[in-house]
Simulated assay, not measured.
Amino acid sequence: MKIEIREVDETNVEDMISVCNPPTITEAYKKGVEIKRAWLLEMLRTYGDVGFVGYFNRKPAAQLLTYPEKADPTSLKRENVLVVNCIYNPFLEAQRKGIARSMVEKLIEKARGKYEFLVTHAFETGEFLSQAEFFKRLGFREISKEDLYYSFSRRELKEPYSGFWKGGEEYKRNERDIGKVFLFYEPTCPFTYLWAHRSKEIVKEIAPELEIRMLNGWEHPEEFVSRGRNWMLVNGIPIKSLPIEREKFREEVMRAIKT
């Protein structure tokens, strides 16, 4: 058994991407990968690093994706904060080997002196150990139940994570959104583009007359933030379910259309 943790650079960008690949690769997922690849290269060339890949027996098995908060135009853009966007180890044979812990420990070592805080939104996938519990064991503290931070200075961080994965905020229905569909995705994860594409196809089946806009939230930050950071709006109503919950999603979309 051999475990290796490597920083991501231009020679192993594809290894980071491959960790998240689903069993079936669709054209929409490929498009999401193109978007993520371009973003990774931009982050590397602008800021110098985007995280780590964990290898198990020489194969990429896990990823830890990071970026400076100031790089995200939809965020609070704090200079001293590094966002831990995602940590993922999907392969059974590579789990419980300490790979994820090793990646975070390497990150802490690398970020010390360069940033004052690490911050993450510990969203739950229903798999493995709770992300919140995992980060707490490594010295992260709570801002809220799912928002956690690591302080190099021991100062408290009170403002929460503000990135795409945070999910929708309070949104007041606006006349300009009536009769339209807005779908937002972001460049750090191919699945956000895939979900947006699938959602678009379902809406076209239900209500082909509606105007549909698919937008990269990082490229259209004002559009995204002004709509309460909700990933999808139908007829001015935020949609909370995902297209993978097909019937629930269709019902929610149909209710929004009739509202």
Rank of each mutant, 00 (worst) to 15 (best):
R96M: 10
D147R: 00
L210H: 06
K180R: 15
I178L: 15
T120G: 00
I206R: 00
A207R: 13
A122P: 07
S162C: 11
K204Q: 11
V203A: 04
I206C: 00
A94Q: 03
A94V: 08
A111G: 05
G126A: 03
Q95P: 06
P208I: 14
E105T: 11
F117T: 06
K145F: 07
F134P: 11
S153A: 12
S153C: 08
F182S: 08
P90H: 08
Y115F: 14
D147L: 02
E124G: 02
L210I: 11
A100S: 14
L138T: 10
T120I: 13
G113V: 15
F135C: 03
L107M: 09
I87V: 15
Y171H: 10
K136S: 13
W195N: 08
A132C: 09
D177Q: 08
Y193S: 02
V181H: 01
M103D: 10
A122L: 05
Q131F: 12
E186N: 02
R141W: 10
R101N: 08
E142S: 15
S130L: 07
P160W: 01
S130G: 12
Y185A: 02
L107H: 01
Y150M: 00
G167L: 15
R112G: 01
E209G: 06
D147F: 07
P90V: 06
G126V: 13
L210Y: 11
N174H: 11
E186Q: 12
E146R: 07
L129M: 12
A122N: 05
K110H: 08
P160D: 02
E211F: 07
I108M: 05
I99N: 03
T188H: 13
F134M: 06
C189H: 12
I108T: 05
I202K: 08
G163M: 06
F134K: 07
E109I: 00
T125A: 13
H197P: 03
R198G: 11
N174Y: 06
Y193E: 03
L183N: 01
G163E: 09
V203E: 03
E116D: 15
A94L: 04
A111C: 07
E116I: 12
E175S: 04
S151Q: 02
E109N: 03
K106F: 10
Y88E: 09
T120S: 01
K204C: 02
Y115S: 03
E211P: 07
S199G: 15
F191N: 09
T192M: 04
F117S: 03
L183H: 02
L138W: 06
F182A: 04
A122S: 14
I99D: 07
E124W: 05
A122K: 03
L157D: 11
S102E: 15
E156C: 05
A100F: 13
R176H: 10
T125M: 14
K97G: 01
L118S: 04
I178C: 10
E105G: 06
F123K: 08
S162F: 13
L148Y: 02
A94R: 01
F135K: 00
F135N: 01
E201S: 09
F152D: 08
G167W: 14
A100V: 12
R176T: 14
G168M: 06
L107T: 06
G126Y: 13
W195M: 12
A111T: 07
E175C: 01
E127P: 05
L148E: 00
Y115C: 04
R112Q: 11
W165D: 10
V181I: 13
G113F: 15
T192P: 07
D147G: 01
